[in-house]
Amino acid sequence: MQQGSGGLVDLLLSADTFYDLLSTVQYLDIIQASNTDAINELLALEDELELARVSLNSQMQEAEERREEAEDALDEAKAARDELEAKIAAQQAAEEAARKAAIEAAKKEDGKTFTTESGGSATVETPSNDNGPGSVSPGSDKDAFVSEWAPRIDAYLAGSPLSGQGKTFAEAAFEYNVDPRFSPAISMVESTQGRYCFKPHNAWGWGSSSWSSWEEAIWAHVQGLSIGYGGRLTVAGAKKYCPPNWQYWYSTVASEMSKI
C-alpha cells in the first residue's frame, strides 16, 4: 500500500474528514507493527532453524564418524577372530600330527619297556584305535556321571591296591572337570595301579608327594591334572609329565584309557 500510493499528501486529499485521516493512519500503523512483529518472529525462527541445521549436521557427522569407527572395530574383531581360529586350527593340526607321530613311534617299540616319570618301567602299548581314546567330559549330571564311571573304573582296578576307588576317581573327575579315565590310566603306567609306589599312596609318579590315604591322593592327583594338564591326555601334557619318553608314555596312557 505504501509503495502503490502517494504517501501522506494523497492520504490528506483522499480523506473526507480529519477523523478518517487519523483512522487510516492508525490502521496503517497497526498493520506495519503487525508486519514487523511477524518479520521479527520469522527471523527468530530462521535463526533457530539455522542452529538446528548446524546441530543436526554436527550430529550427522558425529554419527557417521561413530559408524565408521564401529565398522573399523567390527573389521578388527573379525580379523582377530579369524587369526585366533587360524591359530587354533594350526595348534590342533600340530597336536594331531604329534599324536600320530607318538603312536607310530610307540608301534615300533610295542612290547618293549620304557622308564616312567616315577623311575619305574612300563611296557610300551598302543591303543587299538589309531584315533586314541577320545575325550570324556563330566557334563552337568553328577549322579549319572558317577554311576556310569565308578563301576567301569572299579572293573579296571580290580585286584589292585586301588580297587574299590572307582567312585572316588569319578567324583574327583566330576569336581575338577577331568576325563575320569586319565588318573586311573596313569596309575597303571606309573605304578601298576598302586602296586609299586615310590612314595606312600603315590601311584602316579607325582613329584615327590606322599599322602595318608588313597582318597586323599586321588583327589590331589585329579586336581593337579585339571590345573596343570587341562584334565585331558594331550601330547603337550605327555611332554610335560614324562619328558624323556613322552611318546611311549602318551601312547601307553592312551591305550590304558581305552580299556576303561
Rank of each mutant, 00 (worst) to 15 (best):
G4K: 08
S5I: 05
L8A: 09
V9F: 06
D10A: 15
L11A: 07
L13G: 10
L13W: 11
D16K: 14
F18H: 09
D20I: 08
L22M: 12
V25K: 03
Q26F: 07
L28H: 11
Q32M: 11
D37S: 14
E41C: 04
E41F: 10
L43T: 12
A44T: 13
E48L: 11
E48F: 06
R53D: 10
V54K: 06
S58C: 03
Q59W: 14
Q59D: 14
E62Y: 12
A63I: 11
A63N: 15
E65M: 11
E69S: 08
A70M: 04
E71K: 13
D72R: 14
A73M: 11
D75T: 12
E76R: 13
A80I: 09
A80W: 06
R81G: 02
E83W: 01
E83K: 02
E83F: 02
L84E: 15
L84W: 12
A86E: 11
A90I: 06
A90T: 11
A93D: 15
E95D: 06
A98K: 05
K100M: 13
A101I: 01
A102R: 15
A102E: 08
E104L: 11
A106V: 11
D110W: 03
G111W: 06
E117Y: 01
S118F: 00
S118P: 02
S121C: 03
A122N: 12
V124M: 06
V124I: 15
E125I: 00
P133K: 11
G134V: 03
S137E: 13
S140G: 01
K142G: 04
K142M: 10
D143T: 12
F145K: 03
S147I: 10
E148D: 14
W149N: 07
R152G: 01
G159P: 02
L162T: 05
S163T: 09
S163Y: 07
G164I: 04
Q165N: 15
A170S: 13
A172Y: 10
A172Q: 14
A172D: 12
A173R: 04
E175R: 12
E175Y: 08
Y176E: 07
N177A: 13
N177S: 13
V178P: 09
A185V: 02
I186R: 12
E190V: 05
G194F: 02
C197Q: 15
K199D: 09
H201W: 12
A203W: 07
A203I: 09
S208W: 05
S208A: 08
S208Y: 01
W211A: 00
S212F: 03
S213L: 00
W214L: 00
E215V: 14
E216H: 08
E216C: 06
A217D: 02
I218A: 07
G224N: 11
S226F: 03
I227T: 15
I227Y: 10
Y229K: 00
G230R: 04
L233I: 04
V235P: 07
A236D: 06
A238E: 06
A238P: 07
K239Y: 01
K240M: 05
Y241K: 03
C242H: 12
P243S: 03
P243N: 04
W246H: 10
W246E: 00
Q247F: 02
S251H: 05
A254M: 05
S255I: 06
E256L: 03
M257W: 03
M257S: 04
K259L: 06
